[in-house]
Design a protein around this nucleic acid. Structure first.
Lengths: 149, 149
DNA sequence: TGACGATGGACAGATTATCGAACTAAATTA
DNA sequence: TAATTTAGTTCGATAATCTGTCCATCGTCA
């Protein structure tokens, strides 16, 4: 252990990766512990990006950073497990809106709770000022790193 | 497009995920463009975590957040492709050190260059002060989110 | 209006990634 | 020395992802 890193300043990408991964696994674990133990990490990534009013497959794929095909596959799984449902998009006959079903809503509530708990932990460690700064800076960084918005 | 997010404050995990993913894909693309087009994303994640003096499989797995089995699999791929080599660890006959081979070093140089370019882009957008803050805060956050260190 | 390119989505097949279980060999501990 | 732990591998199963292809619908422009 204690392997010295290859370079002094660690890559900002990895520095972002570490907490992102931690949050993902913590939330997934909490959700599984609450009985929703058939959700996988990849499914969860897509699930948490569905808006309350429903979201299109394409948008979902873009936001979760996967191809349309992968999104189709994952949403198929989630649909069969009762977490989401696909309804026609009234504004475009080609499109279908993915909406959160009852079971999905229940799982998301657990997820959001776990999320908040982890964030609170982080805030305790960082202090309020830096936690706020972190959120603000990341939100600004998103302007140039998120093709979706 | 323009789907309104489910909640006003976006989850810090996702906010970290977005730039992390962006950096990964940008770097991978640059590396592929330089001729190292047989490296996959998962392989790259492991590859970039190998220290100059070599790193043990177990440490590598922990840092990349995958199981030992997955690390063995990915390092096997990288070894066959000439990016790394496995040498016995002089201090422990059970262990093997994964070291970067010539081809891997060449690829990593391209990767680091791309990395620096993306970071520079981010710094231009955020400004020096916030970019420094971001790195500092993420480094501190790592203290409680990185089981490896 | 109607032909045509673009878009939203699905299916099929192949490849890659990942995990759990079981195993070997070496180190550590009792 | 026997029992336990640790480092790493192999095997088999499953999950995730991509490429290519296809179909239906939408928008646009001649």
């Amino acid at each position: 252990m204690g392997e010295s890193p290859r370079r002094g300043r660690m890559n900002l990408g990895i520095l972002c990766f570490i907490p992102a991964r931690e949050m993902e696994t913590r939330v997934l674990k909490a959700v599984a512990a609450a009985g929703f133990d058939d959700i996988t990490l990849a499914q969860g990534r897509v699930l948490q990006r569905i808006g309350w009013e429903g979201t299109r497959m394409t948008d979902l794929a873009e936001q979760a950073r996967v191809t349309k095909q992968t999104a189709t596959f994952l949403i198929g799984q989630l649909e069969r497990a009762g977490y989401v449902e696909r309804v026609p998009d009234p504004s475009d006959a080609r499109a279908r809106l993915v909406r959160i079903a009852a079971r999905g809503r229940a799982a998301l509530e657990v997820a959001m709770e776990a999320e908040a708990e982890v964030e609170a932990e982080w805030m305790r460690h960082l202090g309020r000022r830096d936690a706020d700064r972190l959120r603000r800076i990341l939100t600004r960084l998103r302007e140039i790193t998120d093709p979706y918005q």
